[in-house]
Protein backbone atom coordinates (compact mmCIF):
# COMPACT_ATOMS: atom_id res chain seq x y z
CA UNK A 1 0.00 0.00 0.00
CA UNK A 2 2.80 2.38 0.94
CA UNK A 3 4.67 1.37 -2.20
CA UNK A 4 1.60 2.05 -4.31
CA UNK A 5 1.24 5.51 -2.79
CA UNK A 6 4.93 6.17 -3.36
CA UNK A 7 4.66 5.14 -7.01
CA UNK A 8 1.54 7.25 -7.41
CA UNK A 9 3.40 10.22 -5.98
CA UNK A 10 6.34 9.64 -8.32
CA UNK A 11 3.96 9.25 -11.22
CA UNK A 12 2.24 12.53 -10.42
CA UNK A 13 5.58 14.33 -10.05
CA UNK A 14 7.00 12.90 -13.24
CA UNK A 15 3.94 13.72 -15.28
CA UNK A 16 4.08 17.31 -14.12
CA UNK A 17 7.84 17.68 -14.47
CA UNK A 18 8.21 16.33 -18.00
CA UNK A 19 6.05 18.97 -19.71
CA UNK A 20 7.83 21.62 -17.65
CA UNK A 21 11.22 20.50 -18.86
CA UNK A 22 9.97 20.28 -22.41
CA UNK A 23 8.34 23.68 -22.13
CA UNK A 24 11.56 25.27 -20.92
CA UNK A 25 13.48 23.78 -23.79
CA UNK A 26 10.70 24.70 -26.19
CA UNK A 27 10.71 28.25 -24.89
CA UNK A 28 14.41 28.47 -25.70
CA UNK A 29 13.85 27.22 -29.21
CA UNK A 30 10.60 29.02 -29.81
CA UNK A 31 8.57 25.85 -29.85
CA UNK A 32 6.72 23.66 -27.38
CA UNK A 33 7.52 20.05 -26.80
CA UNK A 34 7.05 17.40 -24.14
CA UNK A 35 10.55 16.00 -24.59
CA UNK A 36 12.94 15.17 -21.81
CA UNK A 37 16.33 16.05 -23.20
CA UNK A 38 19.07 13.55 -22.49
CA UNK A 39 21.90 14.80 -24.67
CA UNK A 40 22.29 18.19 -26.29
CA UNK A 41 26.02 18.84 -26.51
CA UNK A 42 25.78 21.90 -24.29
CA UNK A 43 23.15 23.58 -26.44
CA UNK A 44 20.57 23.74 -23.70
CA UNK A 45 20.19 26.37 -20.99
CA UNK A 46 21.83 25.42 -17.68
CA UNK A 47 18.57 25.80 -15.75
CA UNK A 48 16.78 23.53 -18.20
CA UNK A 49 19.56 21.01 -17.83
CA UNK A 50 19.19 21.13 -14.08
CA UNK A 51 15.47 20.53 -14.38
CA UNK A 52 16.07 17.71 -16.84
CA UNK A 53 18.61 16.02 -14.59
CA UNK A 54 16.37 16.47 -11.56
CA UNK A 55 13.45 14.95 -13.40
CA UNK A 56 15.55 12.06 -14.64
CA UNK A 57 16.84 11.40 -11.14
CA UNK A 58 13.35 11.40 -9.67
CA UNK A 59 11.82 9.39 -12.44
CA UNK A 60 14.70 7.04 -13.19
CA UNK A 61 13.09 4.09 -11.51
CA UNK A 62 9.66 4.96 -12.77
CA UNK A 63 10.14 5.93 -16.39
CA UNK A 64 10.34 2.33 -17.48
CA UNK A 65 6.71 1.98 -16.40
CA UNK A 66 5.52 5.30 -17.68
CA UNK A 67 4.84 4.49 -21.32
CA UNK A 68 7.77 6.33 -22.79
CA UNK A 69 9.76 6.28 -25.98
CA UNK A 70 13.52 6.83 -25.83
CA UNK A 71 15.43 7.80 -28.93
CA UNK A 72 19.05 6.94 -29.55
CA UNK A 73 21.55 7.77 -32.29
CA UNK A 74 24.38 5.47 -33.27
CA UNK A 75 27.29 5.31 -35.65
CA UNK A 76 27.76 1.68 -34.61
CA UNK A 77 31.17 0.29 -33.75
CA UNK A 78 32.70 1.93 -36.80
CA UNK A 79 32.21 5.27 -35.03
CA UNK A 80 33.46 4.24 -31.61
CA UNK A 81 36.21 1.82 -32.62
CA UNK A 82 36.98 3.14 -36.09
CA UNK A 83 37.84 1.24 -39.23
CA UNK A 84 40.30 -1.43 -38.17
CA UNK A 85 41.46 -4.58 -39.94
CA UNK A 86 39.78 -6.43 -41.47
CA UNK A 87 37.18 -3.68 -41.61
CA UNK A 88 39.41 -1.11 -43.29
CA UNK A 89 38.04 1.39 -45.77
CA UNK A 90 37.53 0.02 -49.25
CA UNK A 91 40.93 1.44 -50.26
CA UNK A 92 42.76 0.00 -47.27
CA UNK A 93 42.90 2.90 -44.79
CA UNK A 94 42.49 2.50 -41.06
CA UNK A 95 40.44 5.29 -39.50
CA UNK A 96 40.33 6.48 -35.92
CA UNK A 97 37.70 9.08 -35.11
CA UNK A 98 38.14 11.69 -32.41
CA UNK A 99 34.77 13.32 -33.11
CA UNK A 100 31.73 12.62 -35.25
CA UNK A 101 29.10 15.28 -34.76
CA UNK A 102 25.71 14.86 -36.38
CA UNK A 103 22.69 17.16 -36.06
CA UNK A 104 19.20 15.65 -36.17
CA UNK A 105 15.93 17.54 -36.47
CA UNK A 106 12.23 17.00 -37.24
CA UNK A 107 12.32 13.67 -35.47
CA UNK A 108 8.96 11.93 -35.58
CA UNK A 109 7.98 8.45 -34.47
CA UNK A 110 5.07 6.88 -36.32
CA UNK A 111 2.52 4.17 -35.80
CA UNK A 112 1.66 2.99 -39.30
CA UNK A 113 -0.90 0.45 -40.49
CA UNK A 114 -0.19 -1.02 -42.95
CA UNK A 115 3.46 -0.82 -41.99
CA UNK A 116 5.50 1.81 -43.81
CA UNK A 117 8.02 0.12 -46.08
CA UNK A 118 10.40 3.05 -46.77
CA UNK A 119 9.16 3.16 -50.34
CA UNK A 120 8.56 6.90 -50.48
CA UNK A 121 9.11 10.19 -48.65
CA UNK A 122 5.64 10.39 -47.04
CA UNK A 123 4.61 8.37 -44.02
CA UNK A 124 0.92 7.94 -43.22
CA UNK A 125 -0.13 7.11 -39.70
CA UNK A 126 -0.26 8.44 -36.16
CA UNK A 127 2.64 10.79 -35.61
CA UNK A 128 4.49 11.57 -32.41
CA UNK A 129 6.53 14.69 -33.09
CA UNK A 130 9.52 14.49 -30.84
CA UNK A 131 11.90 17.41 -31.10
CA UNK A 132 15.10 18.79 -32.45
CA UNK A 133 17.58 19.89 -33.41
CA UNK A 134 20.03 17.80 -31.46
CA UNK A 135 23.76 17.79 -32.08
CA UNK A 136 25.55 14.73 -30.75
CA UNK A 137 29.02 13.21 -30.88
CA UNK A 138 28.62 9.62 -32.05
CA UNK A 139 32.05 8.66 -30.70
CA UNK A 140 30.90 9.52 -27.17
CA UNK A 141 28.58 6.53 -26.95
CA UNK A 142 27.57 3.88 -24.45
CA UNK A 143 28.69 0.27 -24.48
CA UNK A 144 26.12 -0.44 -27.21
CA UNK A 145 27.58 2.35 -29.36
CA UNK A 146 24.48 4.48 -28.79
CA UNK A 147 24.00 8.08 -27.72
CA UNK A 148 20.74 8.83 -25.91
CA UNK A 149 18.97 11.83 -27.44
CA UNK A 150 15.73 12.20 -25.55
CA UNK A 151 12.81 10.48 -23.94
CA UNK A 152 9.18 11.39 -24.48
CA UNK A 153 5.89 10.22 -23.12
CA UNK A 154 4.22 8.08 -25.73
CA UNK A 155 0.80 6.54 -26.16
CA UNK A 156 0.74 2.76 -26.19
CA UNK A 157 1.28 1.17 -29.58
CA UNK A 158 3.93 -0.04 -31.95
CA UNK A 159 6.09 2.77 -33.30
CA UNK A 160 7.11 1.07 -36.51
CA UNK A 161 8.39 3.99 -38.55
CA UNK A 162 10.67 6.94 -37.89
CA UNK A 163 11.32 10.10 -39.84
CA UNK A 164 14.10 12.58 -39.22
CA UNK A 165 16.41 14.95 -40.99
CA UNK A 166 20.13 15.49 -40.92
CA UNK A 167 20.48 19.28 -40.87
CA UNK A 168 23.30 21.82 -40.53
CA UNK A 169 24.17 22.94 -37.03
CA UNK A 170 24.96 26.50 -35.97
CA UNK A 171 28.31 26.20 -37.72
CA UNK A 172 26.63 25.20 -40.96
CA UNK A 173 27.48 21.50 -41.05
CA UNK A 174 25.17 18.55 -40.60
CA UNK A 175 27.92 15.95 -40.29
CA UNK A 176 31.54 16.44 -39.24
CA UNK A 177 34.08 13.64 -38.93
CA UNK A 178 37.47 14.31 -37.37
CA UNK A 179 40.24 11.83 -36.81
CA UNK A 180 43.42 10.22 -38.03
CA UNK A 181 43.80 7.94 -41.03
CA UNK A 182 46.64 5.47 -41.29
CA UNK A 183 47.97 3.38 -44.17
CA UNK A 184 51.41 1.82 -44.30
CA UNK A 185 53.70 4.54 -42.89
CA UNK A 186 51.32 7.39 -43.66
CA UNK A 187 49.38 9.11 -40.89
CA UNK A 188 46.86 11.72 -41.99
CA UNK A 189 44.82 13.94 -39.65
CA UNK A 190 41.53 14.84 -41.30
CA UNK A 191 38.34 16.82 -40.94
CA UNK A 192 35.52 15.86 -43.27
CA UNK A 193 32.30 17.82 -43.21
CA UNK A 194 29.05 18.11 -45.10
CA UNK A 195 26.61 21.03 -45.19
CA UNK A 196 23.82 18.99 -46.81
CA UNK A 197 20.32 18.60 -45.40
CA UNK A 198 18.84 15.16 -45.88
CA UNK A 199 15.36 13.94 -44.98
CA UNK A 200 14.87 10.32 -44.00
CA UNK A 201 11.62 8.34 -43.98
CA UNK A 202 12.43 5.05 -42.36
CA UNK A 203 10.66 1.75 -41.96
CA UNK A 204 10.67 -0.35 -38.80
CA UNK A 205 13.89 -0.75 -36.84
CA UNK A 206 15.71 -3.94 -37.75
CA UNK A 207 18.17 -5.56 -35.40
CA UNK A 208 18.70 -8.29 -32.89
CA UNK A 209 15.47 -7.36 -31.12
CA UNK A 210 12.26 -5.85 -32.44
CA UNK A 211 11.77 -2.33 -31.08
CA UNK A 212 9.13 0.32 -30.62
CA UNK A 213 6.47 -1.44 -28.56
CA UNK A 214 5.11 0.98 -25.94
CA UNK A 215 2.57 -0.26 -23.41
CA UNK A 216 0.94 1.26 -20.35
CA UNK A 217 3.55 -0.37 -18.17
CA UNK A 218 6.68 -0.47 -20.30
CA UNK A 219 8.69 1.90 -22.40
CA UNK A 220 10.44 1.32 -25.70
CA UNK A 221 13.31 2.73 -27.69
CA UNK A 222 14.11 3.56 -31.28
CA UNK A 223 17.41 4.28 -32.99
CA UNK A 224 18.74 6.50 -35.73
CA UNK A 225 21.70 4.67 -37.20
CA UNK A 226 24.38 6.12 -39.47
CA UNK A 227 26.23 3.49 -41.51
CA UNK A 228 29.69 4.97 -41.96
CA UNK A 229 30.75 2.17 -44.28
CA UNK A 230 28.42 3.71 -46.86
CA UNK A 231 30.78 6.70 -46.81
CA UNK A 232 34.14 4.93 -46.75
CA UNK A 233 33.36 1.47 -48.10
CA UNK A 234 34.72 -1.72 -46.63
CA UNK A 235 37.85 -3.65 -47.59
CA UNK A 236 36.26 -6.88 -46.39
CA UNK A 237 33.46 -6.51 -48.96
CA UNK A 238 33.67 -7.26 -52.64
CA UNK A 239 34.79 -4.39 -54.89
CA UNK A 240 31.60 -4.86 -56.89
CA UNK A 241 29.40 -4.57 -53.82
CA UNK A 242 26.84 -1.80 -54.32
CA UNK A 243 27.98 -0.10 -51.16
CA UNK A 244 31.63 -0.07 -52.24
CA UNK A 245 30.70 1.20 -55.68
CA UNK A 246 28.96 4.20 -54.13
CA UNK A 247 31.33 4.90 -51.25
CA UNK A 248 34.15 7.45 -51.52
CA UNK A 249 36.74 5.45 -49.64
CA UNK A 250 39.42 7.62 -48.03
CA UNK A 251 41.79 8.26 -50.97
CA UNK A 252 39.94 11.44 -52.07
CA UNK A 253 40.75 12.88 -48.62
CA UNK A 254 44.25 11.42 -48.25
CA UNK A 255 45.95 14.82 -48.56
CA UNK A 256 44.64 15.50 -45.07
CA UNK A 257 43.21 18.71 -43.66
CA UNK A 258 39.66 19.90 -44.13
CA UNK A 259 37.46 18.54 -46.89
CA UNK A 260 33.80 19.05 -47.65
CA UNK A 261 31.71 16.31 -49.19
CA UNK A 262 28.14 15.79 -50.31
CA UNK A 263 25.71 13.29 -48.86
CA UNK A 264 23.81 13.17 -52.14
CA UNK A 265 23.64 9.58 -53.26
CA UNK A 266 25.07 8.19 -50.06
CA UNK A 267 22.64 6.33 -47.80
CA UNK A 268 24.16 6.72 -44.39
CA UNK A 269 20.84 6.93 -42.57
CA UNK A 270 19.21 3.74 -41.35
CA UNK A 271 17.18 2.44 -38.42
CA UNK A 272 19.39 -0.39 -37.24
CA UNK A 273 19.61 -2.43 -40.43
CA UNK A 274 16.25 -1.13 -41.58
CA UNK A 275 16.17 1.16 -44.57
CA UNK A 276 15.13 4.75 -45.10
CA UNK A 277 13.83 6.64 -48.08
CA UNK A 278 16.25 9.53 -48.53
CA UNK A 279 15.50 12.97 -49.98
CA UNK A 280 17.93 15.86 -50.31
CA UNK A 281 16.45 19.05 -48.87
Amino acid sequence: MILQRKQAFHSAVCRRMQPLVGALDGWRKGRMTNAVVLHTEGKILPMTRVFALATMAICASFSVHAGSLTLFASGEDLATEGFTAPQLTKDGWALEFTRITATFDQITAWQTDPPFMADGPAITGTALLIAGPFTVDLTDADEDDRVALLRVEAAPGHYNALSWALVPDADGFSLVLEGIARKDVREVPFTLRSADSVAHACSEYLGDTRKGFVTDTTGADLEITLHLDHLFGRADKDDADEMNLAAFGFEPFAAGGVHEFTLDGLHLGHVGEGHCHVSML
Binding site: D119, H230, E242, V278
Partner: peptide, 13 residues
Protein backbone atom coordinates in the same frame (compact mmCIF):
# COMPACT_ATOMS: atom_id res chain seq x y z
CA UNK B 1 5.80 -9.05 -51.86
CA UNK B 2 7.83 -6.49 -50.00
CA UNK B 3 10.90 -4.56 -50.88
CA UNK B 4 13.00 -1.95 -49.25
CA UNK B 5 15.88 0.42 -49.95
CA UNK B 6 16.33 2.70 -52.88
CA UNK B 7 18.93 4.02 -55.21
CA UNK B 8 22.59 3.34 -55.44
CA UNK B 9 24.55 2.61 -52.34
CA UNK B 10 21.87 0.33 -51.04
CA UNK B 11 20.97 -3.10 -52.22
CA UNK B 12 17.30 -3.50 -52.87
CA UNK B 13 15.90 -6.39 -50.95
Amino acid sequence: TASSAQGWGQRLL
